[in-house]
């Protein structure tokens, strides 16, 4: 399944770079257009400010590590970016679309088609086998069962867990379960994968296997990744890092 990504480069007014004849520089510029961007995001839980004016961007095919101490606001930032919560102020843009202004039904559809979300504990459905878990997003999107199972099997294989296709989550190791969860997040071939502490519950070597395979697969697929972590050894799998402290980006949006 493939999806067309709304691209800011195709819809925004031409700037000096796009007005020049196409050349290598223009191509690079086009590829570096943000696939996802946030501007001045503010979000509070009651009286507690979680985000206090966060601006950031994610370019196509980039793995962006979002780090910061516990309670810094990094997970809230991910929830806003993925459209799981609506910011109190500011906007989230996916290509040319301001998704933070859209209704929940629209954002929900976006999460089924263009966004993949992965949490620390894979949140697999315990009653379903690995292959059924991975096929689930496709079935919810209306794909025929046989096609969904075939695609899910391929994705399990890409993550090196084909052997647990018929196993249920309680029968798998933590590392296997998390690889199945990444396969499920990737099965719709999303433009953006959101991963919140994806290896937080795993030992070092299992975490390394999950991350190594995840990075290899997203590089092949050209998927952009927002990797939320408090762990620098996990952030080091990214291309760039932003640090969230006290609900704000610490220093410049650097990298």
């Amino acid at each position: 399944m493939t999806h067309s990504i709304p691209d800011a480069a195709e819809t925004t007014p031409p700037d000096s770079a796009t007005e020049r004849p196409p050349d290598a520089t223009t191509v690079v510029h086009h590829q570096n257009r943000p696939v996802l961007a946030a501007r001045s995001l503010v979000f509070s839980y009651g009286n507690t400010a979680a985000l206090r004016g966060v601006s950031m961007h994610l370019t196509r095919g980039e793995i962006l590590a979002v780090t910061g101490p516990s309670g810094s606001g990094k997970s809230t930032l991910m929830l806003c970016l993925a459209g799981l919560v609506t910011p109190d102020a500011g906007e989230v843009r996916f290509g040319d679309q301001v998704i933070s202004a859209e209704k929940e039904a629209f954002r929900s559809k976006l999460r089924r088609t263009d966004f993949g979300v992965l949490f620390q504990f894979g949140q697999l459905v315990p009653e379903l086998t690995a292959v059924e878990n991975v096929a689930l997003p496709l079935l919810l999107a209306g794909v025929k069962r046989s096609s969904a199972i075939t695609a899910a099997t391929t994705w399990l294989d890409r993550f090196g867990v084909a052997e647990v296709a018929g196993s249920r989550p309680p029968e798998m190791s933590g590392g296997q379960g998390q690889r199945v969860a990444v396969a499920r997040a990737m099965v719709t071939e999303p433009s953006v994968l959101f991963a919140d502490e994806p290896t937080g519950a795993l030992d070092a070597l299992s975490g390394e296997q999950v991350l190594t395979q995840m990075v290899r697969v997203v590089r092949e697929a050209g998927t952009s990744v927002v990797l939320i972590t408090h762990d620098a050894t996990v952030a080091a799998y990214g291309d760039r890092e932003i640090v969230v402290r006290d609900g704000m980006i610490d220093g410049a949006d650097h990298g």
Binding site: V215, T233, A236, Y237, G238, E241, V243, D250, G255
Partner: peptide, 23 residues
């Protein structure tokens, strides 16, 4: 703080190199 942030960037950049090497 500015020095520490830039040092952090340099450390993480080196960590990325080692991560690429070991994977």
């Amino acid at each position: 703080a500015d020095y520490l942030r830039r040092q952090r960037d340099a450390h993480l950049a080196r960590m990325r190199e080692y991560t690429r090497l070991k994977t």
